[in-house]
């Protein structure tokens, strides 16, 4: 007969194996190719910036949870590590250390913990940190080391990103054709031989991460596909209207952190919609706002702002875009 106490609980009695922790570390693994490429491209600085950002994020999360919120800190669930890496991916490798620490504090403290920690923040913490730095330290945040072959020769010179120089050139009255001559080729852009923030440069490495995350079922395809294709479509429309003033769509997609944003930042669970239909709307919204900022705004790049703006729309999207109720009259039935 039964010798021990049986456990009784409501169904279900089995559970899938992916926990929050595993999902988060899955994302970290997906970011490894981009990190490796940034090390290849920017040299030892990339490791330095990334590890500094990650460590300060962990420390801030621990301190705030333990002493300010007075609860059991849970820093090893991986979310702070992701925030740290993403923040590092979004800054130039030449950034002074104190700016990185400030960015981490803003990202974790204001972006996440002030709302109650993981799961409660309306905005992507890494982007909150990044945008704060962009506004507070515009010079440091927009001078990128010219990409050399990182480990071989560290080039001290710094310059603007391609989108930045295009914008500047257009402002000076130069035509797109002449500007494009000096721009890198598509294959250089795809593999990542361009100036820019740490992690945003290599579309190839980021796509590897996307494939991994899709394979592991960490994210679904909806947000990245919707966002990238909408950027392609909207910038393509502008390009068709006036090719002398606007860069072609492929160029837009491969530059300025579109890949990084679409794959790692817009897909953040906490700050994206819950339903697949909502995700599509969210992705298209980001694409539209990005193109608008790039074409008509004063910033050459718009992905971060676009994602933050759409983050603010997520509650609205979730309120009005519901999944199809089984049996209700709708377009699925």
């Amino acid at each position: 007969m039964s010798t021990k106490f049986l456990t009784v609980s409501p169904s279900p009695h089995v559970h899938q194996e992916q926990s929050v922790k595993e999902l988060m570390y899955g994302v970290v693994i997906a970011m490894v190719p981009a990190l490796l490429f940034s090390i290849y491209n920017f040299g030892i600085e990339a490791i330095y910036v990334t590890s500094l950002a990650v460590i300060s994020c962990l420390i801030f999360e621990f301190t705030i949870a333990k002493y300010l919120l007075q609860r059991e800190p849970d820093v090893w669930n991986g979310s702070a590590i992701i925030t740290g890496i993403l923040l590092a991916f979004n800054v130039p490798s030449s950034l002074p250390w104190y700016i990185i620490v400030i960015g981490s504090l803003v990202a974790i403290g204001i972006g996440k913990m002030s709302f109650g920690g993981l799961g409660n923040n309306p905005f992507n913490p890494a982007l909150v940190g990044r945008v704060f730095l962009l506004i507070s330290f515009p010079v440091e945040m927009t001078s990128w080391p010219v990409p050399g072959n990182g480990f071989m020769e560290i080039d001290g010179a710094s310059g603007a990103t391609i989108l930045g120089s295009l914008k500047e050139g257009l402002g000076n009255g130069e035509s797109m054709e002449t500007l494009m001559v000096s721009a890198p080729s598509y294959s250089e852009l795809f593999w990542g031989f361009q100036g820019g923030s740490l992690g945003e440069i290599s579309a190839f490495a980021l796509l590897l991460g996307l494939v991994y995350m899709l394979y592991k079922k960490i994210i679904t395809w909806h947000i990245p596909v919707a966002m990238i294709s909408s950027i392609f479509v909207f910038s393509g429309l502008l390009w068709l209207i006036d090719p002398t003033q606007h860069a072609d769509p492929l160029f837009h997609v491969l530059t300025g952190g579109v890949m990084l944003g679409a794959i790692f930042m817009a897909t953040d669970y906490v700050t994206s919609p819950m339903t697949t239909k909502g995700m599509l709307v969210f992705g298209v919204g980001i694409g539209l706002i990005t193109v608008l900022i790039r074409a008509f705004g004063s910033y050459p790049e718009g992905v971060s702002f676009a994602i933050l703006i759409m983050n603010a729309f997520v509650p609205l999207i979730d309120k009005y875009i519901k999944p199809h109720r089984f049996g209700a009259k709708g377009f699925l039935s």
Partner: peptide, 15 residues
């Protein structure tokens, strides 16, 4: 963490 996996899994279209 608002991952939306429950919404995706629900066969009745609930949240």
């Amino acid at each position: 963490i608002r991952c939306g996996k429950c919404v995706e899994a629900c066969p009745m279209g609930l949240e």
